[in-house]
Structure formats: structure tokens, C-alpha cells
């Protein structure tokens, strides 16, 4: 593990956005999204400018859009809600393509979809251009409490280990005819999760002892820039 491997959304590259310090990127994302969220819902010109700014950043980052766009499906549940909004809202009705919908609902639904999509695309841009280790260093520079940074570091480091362990458990269950999605097999699934918790916790204990034996005193020295 460690630096260089990236994570699932990371897109290997050497563009200026990749090289920018992580704390600047996090602050830029936060500031940008606060502006987007605070934009009045019918200021479509402002939305267009914000989308163009984001697209410009993506072009500069040299992460291809065909890499980012399929990964936007994560917002699908709320997109469904946004699409439903014109139908479930009240207020004056208006006709769109021959269907009677609520006018304020339509406005709110569009605004929700636009803001949510800009948010997901902006977050994907951060995730695809930032290595986890750089992100941790960035959060440290932003004065995130040391303990939170450390817990996050351990989570990122062991994410693939634990999810791969879960994946192997699920493969083993399925190969024995168990369907983890079916409520009928929940007892089996739950025992697996219980075992996963015990294994994760015990791994945490072993990691802690291993770190103690290497001089751990509550601080992680390798989070400082080492390159």
C-alpha cells in the first residue's frame, strides 16, 4: 500500500491540477460548491458560468470526460427525486410537452439536478486528481484534528484489505448457494459480517502492536512530505 497506488477513482496523470497542493484543492472545492449551493435557483446564467468554470478545470486537469461522466451514476437516487419534484410539488401548474406539472416544482427540480450534478462532477475531479496520501497531508495542513487524520489514514490504508476480505467471504457464500441479498440468508450474511468485524478489530490490534514495536507514540511521522 502507501503512496503511488492511488485509489479507485484516481486517474493517473501529471497535469497542473494533479500537481496542485491537496489543501488548496479541498478549499477550492468547498468554496466553489458553497457558491454553487448559494446560487439562486433561477439564475441559469450563473449556473452556466459555474459549469464552464468546472469544465475548464477538468480540461486543464487532462482527466477525460468519458472517465468522469459514467462515474456520476452515484447521484442517481437523488436525480430520481429531482425528476419527480415537478409531479409531487404544488403551486401553479404549467404544461411541459403536454404533461401538467407544478411550476415551482419544475424550477426546484431543475435547480436540484444542476447543483447536484455540478457537485458530483466537482467532487469527482478532486478524487480523480488527488492521491489519498496527498489528501491526508492536505487535511493535516488544514488543521484537521490529528486523530481524525490518523483514523482516516488507517481507513484508506486498509480499505482494500477489508473490502477484498468481504469480497472473498461473499464469493465463498455464493459458491455454496447462498444469495446474500435475500432476507432468507441474512443470518448467514450477518455471521459473516460479525466475523469481518472481529477480523477487522483484531487486525487493528495487531497493527497497533506492530506500530508500538516500531516506536509509535501517537503521531504518524510518515505523513510529512517525504519525496
Amino acid at each position: 500500500m502507501g503512496a503511488g497506488h492511488g485509489h479507485r477513482l484516481f486517474f493517473h496523470g501529471h497535469g497542473p491540477i494533479h500537481r496542485a497542493p491537496a489543501h488548496v484543492k479541498v478549499l477550492a472545492l468547498l468554496g466553489f460548491m458553497l457558491v454553487v449551493v448559494a446560487t439562486p435557483r433561477q439564475a441559469y446564467g450563473v449556473f452556466a458560468v459555474e459549469a464552464l468554470v468546472l469544465l475548464a478545470v477538468i480540461v486543464v486537469s487532462r482527466v477525460p470526460l468519458r472517465y468522469l461522466l459514467p462515474r456520476m451514476v452515484i447521484e442517481l437516487p437523488f436525480a430520481v427525486f429531482a425528476v419527480l419534484m415537478p409531479f409531487i410539488s404544488h403551486g401553479p401548474r404549467t404544461d411541459v410537452l403536454g404533461v401538467s406539472v407544478s411550476e415551482p416544482g419544475l424550477v426546484a427540480g431543475i435547480a436540484l439536478l444542476v447543483k447536484g450534478s455540478i457537485g458530483v462532477l466537482a467532487a469527482l475531479t478532486l478524487a480523480s486528481t488527488t492521491e489519498p496520501q496527498d489528501l491526508l497531508r492536505g487535511l493535516q495542513r488544514l488543521r484537521m484534528p490529528e486523530l481524525v487524520v490518523q483514523i482516516m489514514g488507517f481507513m484508506i490504508r486498509y480499505l482494500d484489505v477489508v473490502t477484498a476480505e468481504l469480497g472473498r467471504m461473499m464469493t465463498a457464500l455464493r459458491s455454496r448457494g447462498c444469495d446474500p441479498r435475500s432476507p432468507r440468508h441474512w443470518p448467514v450474511l450477518a455471521r459473516s459480517l460479525g466475523a469481518l468485524f472481529i477480523r477487522s478489530y483484531e487486525r487493528g490490534e495487531r497493527v497497533h502492536l506492530a506500530m508500538l514495536s516500531r516506536g509509535y507514540d501517537g503521531k504518524l511521522p510518515q505523513l510529512e512530505k517525504t519525496s
Binding site: Q150, R181, L189, L196, S200
Partner: peptide, 24 residues
Amino acid sequence: DDRTAPRAGLVATFVFAAQMINFP
């Protein structure tokens, strides 16, 4: 106590993994 970071980190990882399981 002093074991907070590694253990909480692994518990967080476990919670994340458990959240990956969907049920109908």
C-alpha cells in the same frame, strides 16, 4: 485510549464495508 487511531480506523473500514451490502 492510546489504541484509538488504529482500531477506530479499522472499525471505520468495517463500517464502510458493511455499508456496501445492499438489501431489497
